[in-house]
Design a binder for these strands. Structure first.
Lengths: 184, 184
DNA sequence: AATCCCATGTAATCTGTTACATGATTGC
DNA sequence: GCAATCATGTAACAGATTACATGGGATT
């Protein structure tokens, strides 16, 4: 139940068309909640139908025509209620951890190569986050409540990437190349 | 595409019935890939149909009768291939980070309460992992390739919980009670 | 008129969740 | 016999992914 709220948040930050939203879900909001344009258009339809957002009046709203959306008061209220709502953290569900566990049973095979590849991807993502941090939250700047919260979210991303980098390095250290298979 | 491989891994570790698998997905494997019994039964059916596992011969395989499964060579091969396969890390998709971002727009409301609740849950989970580590991987024990990999997976869980605890504490520190709402 | 890009969608499929149904076994 | 529990499933739906379809405007 997070996608509609991700969209409401994005639209409150700046009213947008479906495509513009899609672009923003490739960065910014999308760093913490990804979505494709199909999901976004479908959800925009539902949100409009539910009276949480509305399309800004435009000449002719036909197919292929840009349609800008803005959040209605009901939408803002729903988002505020969601922020407060109790919702348990989802248990971890990560394919890489699972693959490591499988490797313990069938042997690591070429997992080392894959780990190195992931390491590079996480390092690149970390670098991207750090550049954003430098640009948007330079050290020593006074910031308001809004900025503090947004910075905190970014810190979360940075620390998660840092965790992965450390964990993968640890994994690679204990994994020569083609290790021998454990017992059948 | 991870659920079938999670099941193959679990069945290689120990042939089991559907219900026994379900129980094990509440701990162990389930710490890194959760699944309900409905998912498991459905997937067991597909895996059997696909010739990756088979039900051990039993008296009368009717409804309500226990059915034990074991992995066939094709299943082991598929799992080994999956361990090697290139599969990009999924982008972060976390409701709590998203809620923090939404809080930057609509104000934190009672998010602090929710954060404290999550903090307690993560602390409990961390404790559970640490007890497992003490029990299964006591310091100074020599361990084989299999144990090293399984320990590494557990370390991943421990470090992830540690991250969340740190991050939530950081968040709570910068969030008195009911902060004032930022701009409309 | 052909091609490309912007923009909005539909359809099919897969994965995951929630609620419910059915049969077998065991203890009372 | 009845209730509780073990065990295996069905059905309906919600959410996410992938592939494809449609149309407008600009460029060449």
């Amino acid at each position: 139940m997070s996608l509609p709220h991700a969209i409401l948040t994005a639209l409150l930050e700046k009213p947008s068309s479906g495509l513009a939203l899609t672009r923003r879900f490739d960065k910014s909001i999308g760093y913490f909640w990804s979505a494709t344009h199909q999901q976004i258009y479908r959800e925009l339809g539902k949100l409009e139908e539910g009276g949480l957002i509305r399309a800004l009046p435009s000449p002719q709203p036909t197919r292929g025509q840009k349609k800008e959306y803005e959040v209605l008061p009901a939408g803002r209220a729903e988002l505020a209620a969601w922020v407060d709502r109790a919702e348990d953290p989802k248990p971890i569900r990560d394919p890489l951890l699972l693959r490591m566990r499988a490797a313990a049973v069938v042997g690591p095979g070429g997992l080392g190569v894959e780990l190195s590849r992931h390491l590079a991807l996480h390092q690149a993502q970390l670098k991207e986050y750090e550049e954003i941090e430098e640009r948007d939250f330079p050290a020593g700047a006074r910031d308001g409540a809004q900025d503090r919260l947004r910075h905190l979210v970014l810190r979360g991303g940075i620390e998660l990437e840092t965790f992965w980098i450390g964990w993968i390095e640890e994994a690679l250290a204990g994994m020569p190349e083609a290790d021998s298979e454990p017992g059948a």
